[in-house]
Lab assay of single mutants.
Amino acid sequence: MQRVNMIMAESPGLITICLLGYLLSAECTVFLDHENANKILNRPKRYNSGKLEEFVQGNLERECMEEKCSFEEAREVFENTERTTEFWKQYVDGDQCESNPCLNGGSCKDDINSYECWCPFGFEGKNCELDVTCNIKNGRCEQFCKNSADNKVVCSCTEGYRLAENQKSCEPAVPFPCGRVSVSQTSKLTRAETVFPDVDYVNSTEAETILDNITQSTQSFNDFTRVVGGEDAKPGQFPWQVVLNGKVDAFCGGSIVNEKWIVTAAHCVETGVKITVVAGEHNIEETEHTEQKRNVIRIIPHHNYNAAINKYNHDIALLELDEPLVLNSYVTPICIADKEYTNIFLKFGSGYVSGWGRVFHKGRSALVLQYLRVPLVDRATCLRSTKFTIYNNMFCAGFHEGGRDSCQGDSGGPHVTEVEGTSFLTGIISWGEECAMKGKYGIYTKVSRYVNWIKEKTKLT
């Protein structure tokens, strides 16, 4: 034993070699072989497995989906700052455009905790909710729209109204504003409101030439003092309507412009014939205590009207009353817009006519005020429907199939267009061939041609 100890002390290297040989010859039971080890760690190889990531292109799944990435790591994937920024906006807080917040056709661009709407022409605001041009839906104005110097929408209202708090709607500024039905039992019968379409306001006024200088022999019209197929109006439903009495009662109609003036057809009036105007009328054979009678003290036909040349060209006249009318729910003026808007309103496509005229061709006159909704007829169809001249200051309205029309005794009465609950004068009943005849239409004086003249002559002093 002493000898062994001496050998170990003198030859430590020998001992180490012996131990190493023993270990190498022993069977290893701690580690699995290569094949079995792979069965336990069965993990798919990654895209760049075996390579240094710093030297390969980034992978979106590896960089940002398996674990949260930084902007720089995302930049490695896209290799483009702009594309990385677009991805980053949604990656950080989701897609803010998912709810489609942009209105009126706006395009949404996502941002971090926010979004941006790219608005089409005519709109602005956070969600493109603000109209900035009158060309689109009248700028959301209830009545009139004008573009300011910086191309912003400025709404306005006709006389007797003021802008509401929203700067879009119009509200009454006087007790009985024009064009409004205020009798409670008839307010439910107000005709369907007309909503502004998209309009090209630059070209809204037709490029028409008034044929002022045409000389033409007097034409022989049949029954051209021209509501057939209409309905009984309720008291106060058309408070701007008046009836004219002269040699015979209810020979023509008219509309209240203001307390002192009536507008009617020029062919209705004769110099030297006494005319009485009755406002607030409903049943011409009954006294309903809503009527107001006034005498006409002055007749002003349009300066281009000449019955000797043509009885229905420039067929418009103004009547001055001896005493002002007292405005109330049964006696209310009709609204008159400017030339541009009167023309736009007419193009809405349908209007209402009213009167006490004959209820059928050569038949009896109506006792109760009649009204009828009539569609506008395109000019080409209008011209083809008659052998008589249709001037540019006239328009056609009615039904091709016949059966409904204005008729004798309705002449001078109103053709009105309702705009968001307020009625505007767009025409004056003038003439036609018979009444409600198939293929024939009622012919009306186009008020847009005469609004400046009306307003100039009827100013209240």
Rank of each mutant, 00 (worst) to 15 (best):
V153H: 15
L14N: 01
T29E: 12
V248H: 08
L318R: 00
D378Q: 07
G160A: 02
T276K: 03
C335L: 00
A307N: 08
N295D: 10
T417P: 00
S182Q: 06
S182G: 09
V377H: 03
Q185M: 08
N313R: 13
F424H: 00
N151G: 12
P333R: 03
S107Y: 07
I284P: 07
G246C: 03
T81S: 09
E286S: 10
T215P: 07
G427V: 00
V374E: 01
F123Y: 12
W453P: 00
Y47F: 11
V263M: 03
L189H: 11
Y305R: 04
P301T: 09
W261V: 01
V228K: 08
G280Y: 02
G229E: 10
W356V: 10
I309C: 05
V56S: 14
I344S: 14
C69F: 03
K51P: 15
E124D: 15
L103V: 08
S11C: 12
S11T: 13
R75I: 06
V353Q: 04
E129F: 02
E98N: 14
C97M: 02
A366Y: 11
C117F: 00
K247F: 05
A397C: 03
N304D: 11
A380S: 07
F360C: 07
A173R: 09
S49R: 06
K146H: 05
N213I: 07
S220I: 11
V195W: 09
C102V: 01
N213Q: 09
V199L: 09
N80I: 04
W431V: 14
E434A: 14
G13V: 15
P375L: 08
C170L: 01
F196Q: 09
F123T: 08
S182N: 10
S99I: 08
S365Y: 13
K260A: 03
E401N: 08
G439Y: 06
C335T: 01
S354H: 05
H314M: 01
D338T: 14
K311S: 06
N328F: 01
D200S: 09
K168N: 09
T386R: 09
G398L: 04
Q143W: 01
R298Q: 05
N147K: 15
S220L: 12
E165L: 11
T386V: 07
S49I: 09
T381L: 09
T445S: 05
G403A: 10
N166Q: 03
T218N: 10
A37P: 12
L325Q: 00
I299Q: 09
R373M: 07
A380N: 06
E73G: 07
C252N: 01
N5H: 12
T271Y: 05
S255T: 13
M8P: 10
E67Y: 08
Y330S: 03
N295C: 02
G179F: 00
F224P: 12
G236R: 06
V77G: 15
S107R: 13
A26M: 05
T81P: 14
V377C: 03
N100R: 15
D93Y: 11
L24R: 02
F348Q: 10
G413K: 06
L52V: 07
E323W: 05
C28L: 00
A337V: 04
I210T: 12
E434G: 09
T381Y: 07
E456F: 08
R373W: 04
N258C: 01
F395I: 01
F121V: 15
E72W: 05
Y161E: 00
T225K: 09
F78I: 13
R43D: 10
Q370S: 13
N306W: 03
L189I: 15
G122D: 05
C141E: 00
I210G: 12
R373D: 03
G105S: 15
H314A: 07
G442N: 14
E340H: 13
E10F: 10
G254W: 00
E159H: 06
K339H: 09
Y330L: 05
I300G: 01
Q2C: 15
N313T: 11
C134W: 03
G272C: 00
K188Q: 09
K68M: 10
G106Y: 02
K109P: 01
N100G: 04
I284D: 06
Y371V: 15
E288P: 06
Q216S: 10
E159L: 07
V326K: 12
V277I: 11
V447T: 06
L319N: 00
Y352C: 06
N147E: 11
C119V: 00
D110H: 15
A307E: 07
N48D: 15
K387W: 05
E76M: 13
V227L: 08
W261F: 06
K347M: 12
A308R: 12
D33G: 12
N393S: 13
S114K: 06
T29Y: 13
V183T: 11
G349F: 09
L14R: 03
K51G: 12
L41D: 09
Q370H: 14
D200L: 07
T194N: 09
S182M: 11
Y450G: 01
G363S: 13
C155S: 01
K126S: 13
C97W: 01
N393C: 03
E61N: 10
L321D: 00
L14E: 01
R162N: 12
L211S: 12
R140K: 15
I336R: 00
K45C: 05
N258P: 01
C134P: 03
D200W: 09
E27Y: 05
G179D: 01
R180K: 13
T287S: 12
D338E: 08
K109M: 08
H34T: 14
D249S: 02
I390N: 14
I112Q: 15
H415G: 02
I309M: 11
G50E: 09
S114G: 15
C119S: 02
C170Q: 00
K247E: 03
L23A: 04
V374T: 06
K362S: 13
D315F: 01
I454T: 00
Q185W: 10
S350A: 13
L163W: 02
E434Q: 09
F424Q: 00
G402F: 14
V56D: 05
R364Y: 07
T342D: 03
E35H: 05
V92Q: 15
S423Q: 09
D315G: 03
Y201K: 11
G122Q: 06
P44N: 08
E285C: 05
M6P: 05
Y352Q: 03
D315C: 01
P197H: 08
E82T: 10
H289Y: 06
T158S: 08
I429E: 12
S354I: 13
L425K: 00
G13W: 05
W118P: 04
S184G: 08
S25Q: 07
R43Y: 03
T85P: 14
I300C: 03
T209R: 11
H361I: 09
F55P: 15
A307V: 07
I299N: 04
K39L: 11
C117L: 01
S354A: 15
V263W: 00
V353D: 02
R75Y: 06
P324L: 03
V242M: 00
H400L: 14
G409C: 10
T422E: 01
L60K: 09
G351Q: 03
L376K: 06
K247I: 10
T426I: 01
F238C: 04
Q216V: 12
E433N: 15
S217T: 11
H314T: 02
V202S: 13
I309L: 12
K168I: 14
G50S: 07
D95G: 13
S99P: 07
K455I: 07
H415E: 00
C117M: 01
C18L: 14
T422Y: 04
P175E: 13
N343E: 13
K339M: 14
N222G: 13
F251C: 05
G21D: 03
F345K: 00
S204E: 10
Y352W: 05
E35Q: 10
G355T: 06
Y312A: 06
G230P: 10
F55K: 15
Y115C: 03
L14H: 03
E340P: 13
D131L: 08
S204F: 09
V377P: 02
L20G: 01
